[in-house]
């Protein structure tokens, strides 16, 4: 599903955020991406989401080499991924329903389909009763669940999350991780960047560690 082949990323100004990274995340797999601040976790996710491009090497997502993706086809590729952020990235002038509906509207679903799927997604994250509320009136954990609903509403094969529990207390964090586990159980490939080591140690999933832009052998610490 995700294949990194000798990938390096050097930002303008010289510092190398990733160097010679190789890894393979299979379809249906779930993994955590950890490492100290500045280890390159966010850069790695940005390469997958096409927010940044690799300086050298190949990133292959769903069989597509991202080096060959043009600006024009980039949006269609992003529709295959659900992306979740530490700061939720919700639109605060729209209701919960409208926020979650956005990916479906972009893809051109009919209003009836949109309603059905948004309700299903909100039901999965347990927020169906909040559909007419505005995100600002919700707690942090609830807002993050809205953003997860938005990420999964068009049933992407791949879920990416960058510090999804960064702003949440341990109990809420655990709830959010359980949601990701549930999606993984129905076949979605999940990659989560986090430094909540105690939490992920309980979950018994693959852990990919980065240090100074390089991949540590798995199982090492």
């Amino acid at each position: 599903m995700i294949l990194f082949d000798q990938v390096s990323k050097r930002y303008k100004g010289g510092n190398e955020a990733l160097s010679q990274v190789n890894f393979h995340l299979h379809q249906g797999e779930m993994a955590f991406l950890t490492g100290h601040s500045g280890a390159g976790k966010s850069t790695l996710l940005k390469l997958i989401a096409l927010i940044e491009r690799a300086s050298t090497g190949n990133v292959i997502i769903g069989g597509k080499n991202l080096n060959k993706v043009s600006r024009h086809t980039l949006p269609y590729l992003r529709r295959n991924m659900g992306i979740i952020f530490q700061d939720y990235q919700l639109l605060y002038d729209r209701t919960v329903f409208d926020n979650v509906a956005l990916p479906l509207i972009i893809s051109g679903f009919s209003s009836r389909e949109v309603k059905k799927r948004v309700h299903a997604a909100l039901d999965k994250v347990g927020l169906l009763r909040f559909e007419k509320k505005y995100p600002i009136t919700l707690s942090g954990g609830e807002q993050q669940r809205v953003s997860i609903a938005r990420a999964v509403v068009n049933k992407p094969a791949l879920l990416l999350a960058d510090e999804p529990t960064g702003n949440l207390d341990p109990e809420l964090s655990r709830e959010i991780m359980n949601l990701f586990m549930a999606f993984n159980q129905v076949g979605v490939t999940v990659l989560i960047a986090t430094h909540d080591i105690p939490l992920i140690n309980q979950l018994n999933k693959r852990i990919i560690q980065l240090s100074h832009g390089q991949l540590l052998a798995e199982g090492e610490s």
């Binding site: 599903m1 082949d5 292959i60 769903g62 069989g63 295959n80 009919s110 094969a157």
Partner: peptide, 18 residues
């Protein structure tokens, strides 16, 4: 890479599209 490609193209077919 090649073996991977076959694995994923089946995934892409499942992609939800109107």
């Amino acid at each position: 890479v090649k073996s991977n490609a076959t694995e994923v193209s089946s995934v892409q077919l499942r992609q939800l599209k109107p």
